[in-house]
Design a binder for these strands. Structure first.
Lengths: 182, 182
DNA sequence: TCAATATATATCGACGCCGAGGTATGATGC
DNA sequence: GCATCATACCTCGGCGTCGATATATATTGA
């Protein structure tokens, strides 16, 4: 998730670690803040893997900066991660939101639509949070207001997303079809 | 998160590892499946900490089972975690949902309401996912339909939860007030 | 008869994440 | 003159998670 965000932000423009940290914090930090001890090792890992290169520059305000540039390998890796996200990227809301934040970097609308379809399929699958033996339990079955709320919120959330997904997929596929004809 | 779920499920009834695995998978596995290599070490850890004890029993269907019983220490730990969740339990949706699933085990309605208030405060905080320099960006500012969708969905989600939180807090505090008078 | 599946528990190495700590510079405020 | 803050980077130990792997039994179906 972190690596995807780094690749995505660097795709737009070169950044130094500190700036990257601020952007990542805005995107995901609300939910789960990013520690320096997570970010810098991740940068180091990705540099070692050839996905980005570091260039030293004098600092604007204080200490010297190490600007980070995405390499062609990094670019390819971003595309691969967007085009073929693994199941966790689809099911885990935090990861999914990160993916969504950079999905515009997949160039073909049909590919974007294909990713959205996977999320759609995931949300359309019937699920139950609680079981009594083998029998799934509905919201109306327990007196517990918290579990009722849990199911209510989960339902409302997925309805909102389903609506958005369906209209967006339709419009993307229309765009894709038109461009094939042209 | 896993430990909270284990404590919560065992609070209702003794379970063996395999059964626990199924219940945990239903609650959280939809989003992020629980591996055996995560569950069993967690059980072992908690047994070592005195929060549960294991008793061998012949298996119903096959291999022998190790039934898990919550100890008074485990019971106290569950209560502590429910009463004083850390910030991540409040902000991370997956953790929050887990907490919500077992919040009924806090006996005082005022304590339950206090926890909901923390989530309410978190959701009421204004946040922005993206920044242009220092300026937060609204949904209408980017052409990117995916980032627009991201903000739209996040907004719809939190509206649904806010509504539920406000009504539930009100009713819990009314109950609490009534019981103090009685 | 043999394979697959469900039940049932457990370990191990690899790896990523986190919090704490450390270093250095320039601007701001008292 | 000095402390504090924001900028800017980095390491390390500890710990939890994961995937692979191992073991054993009973049932179901080819």
């Amino acid at each position: 998730m972190l690596e995807l965000a780094i690749l995505g932000f660097l795709r737009d423009q070169p950044l130094h670690g500190y700036d990257l940290r601020r952007r990542v914090a805005a995107l995901m930090g609300h939910v789960r803040p990013v520690a320096d001890g997570t970010l810098y090792p991740a940068i180091k890992r990705m540099a070692a893997a050839g996905r980005l290169i570091r260039k030293d520059e004098p600092g604007m305000a204080a200490a010297p900066r190490r600007m980070l540039y995405l390499t062609p390998e990094g670019h390819a890796e971003l595309e691969r991660r967007l085009r073929e996200p693994d199941e966790l990227d689809i099911s885990d809301e935090n990861r999914w939101f990160t993916l969504l934040a950079f999905l515009r970097h997949l160039d073909a609308p049909v590919d974007q639509a294909a990713v959205l379809r996977r999320r759609l399929a995931f949300l359309e699958e019937p699920t139950s949070f609680f079981y009594e033996g083998d029998r799934p339990m509905g919201a109306e079955e327990f007196a517990d207001p918290f579990r009722q709320g849990l199911l209510t919120i989960a339902h409302a959330t997925s309805e909102a997303e389903l609506t958005w997904l369906r209209t967006t997929i339709a419009s993307l596929e229309e765009t894709g079809a038109r461009s094939r004809v042209t």
